[in-house]
């Protein structure tokens, strides 16, 4: 659906070249919710803008539905943009126009007949759940409502792709969830391909099917959201996952707890507790849970437990080997005999 090949983007600022993107290769499938996560300055915003031609690459090609963007004339690029909606962190609504007229802007851009405006606007307003606010001006709306107007405007011409530029970063947590739910719903109901950039791993966790992690203009990791959480490989990714899970043991606890302290990760059907209780029975050791968390990513359970194992060394070691076989991911944090 969307294909980046060998993309490099170079800016020149104060006579020194800055690489916003370095050799990016990425393919985004039709119908998926694809997340791009990274710190500000990682290049994700530039990458997103390549898709609708708001930015052009210094090197490499961008293809949307098989069409090479660099081959398009200005007019054809505008036509393509009708089919690629975009929403923004700060909504970017026309302040001097009410909700209906803001949506109408996109219809005018597409040359839709004026007589078709009312019915189409009515549909769109209903789609984003803004009935009754048609004549309100943006300044009279909350952040979440403004973003809904942004979504309605972006969807006005039945696009197949929606680009989200930090679409929830200016919203409070509750509103963020509502907007993400709406996006998820649109993805499922309309088969809309959604590409969102964010610096919040929670957003990725909530709705993304796949995610690309960016750092310093490079895509350092691409994987299913679940795999990103369960098997992060790059340091940047690990950092994001740790922040999201918020699992860290206080130093004092580490120092004063006897035995082997291990970090177990369990995924899917195999829950940590049942495996642990089996280990206790089989190897005659005692286990105390120091920290733990179970999270659901794409409706699959994902958990981390930090436990200390105490007992005869031989037993503990055997238990450890067995647990490692059972769970695959196990890490010894501290080993005090």
């Amino acid at each position: 659906m969307i294909e980046f090949k060998g993309i490099t983007k170079r800016f020149v600022r104060d006579r020194t070249p800055i690489f916003a993107l370095r050799d990016v290769n990425l393919t985004i499938q039709q119908g998926e919710i694809f997340g791009i996560i990274g710190e500000s300055g990682a290049g994700k915003s530039t990458l997103l803008r390549l898709i609708n031609g708001l930015e052009t690459p210094t090197q490499g090609t961008v293809k949307v539905s098989g069409i090479k963007l660099s081959d398009l004339s200005k007019g054809s690029l505008r036509e393509l943009r009708l089919k690629i909606g975009m929403i923004f962190q700060h909504f970017q609504l026309i302040q001097s126009r009410n909700v209906s007229d803001n949506i109408a802007f996109a219809l005018k851009a597409a040359g839709v007949k004026r007589s078709d405006f009312p019915s189409r606007i009515k549909e769109l307003v209903a789609l984003v759940g803004l009935e009754g606010f048609e004549t309100n001006f943006p300044s009279q709306l909350s952040g979440g409502q403004k973003q809904r107007v942004g979504i309605a405007r972006a969807l006005a011409n039945n696009p197949s792709v929606l680009l989200c530029d930090e679409a929830t970063s200016a919203l409070d947590p509750v509103t963020t969830l509502q907007i993400l739910e709406l996006l998820k719903d649109l993805n499922e109901r309309l088969g809309l391909t959604i590409i969102l950039i964010t610096h919040e791993i929670d957003v990725v966790k909530q709705i993304c099917h796949r995610v690309a992690v960016m750092a310093h203009g490079e895509v350092v990791e691409v994987a299913n959201t679940y795999d990103i959480f369960s098997q992060p490989t790059h340091d940047v990714t690990k950092h994001y996952v740790d922040t999201a899970l918020q699992i860290e043991l206080p130093e004092r606890i580490l120092r004063t707890t006897p035995g082997k302290i291990i970090r177990l990760q369990f995924t899917g059907e195999k829950t940590g507790e049942s495996t642990l209780s089996e280990a206790i029975k089989q190897f005659d050791i005692s286990v105390s849970i120091l920290h733990g968390k179970v999270d659901y990513i794409q409706n699959v359970a994902f958990g981390v437990l930090i436990v200390s194992l105490t007992g005869p060394t031989l037993h503990v070691n055997r238990a450890l080997t067995w647990l490692e076989e059972q769970l695959h991911t196990l890490e010894v944090i501290q080993d005090v005999a």
Binding site: N52, L54, R78, R81, H90, Q92, F105, K108, A109
Partner: peptide, 29 residues
Amino acid sequence: PPGLIEAAEACGATPFRIIISALLPEALP
């Protein structure tokens, strides 16, 4: 805000449309 002009461009609007329906209304006061 430059972002608004960018948003109008992202809508696929022509320069004429952006001027008439976005820039002038916003700058009217």
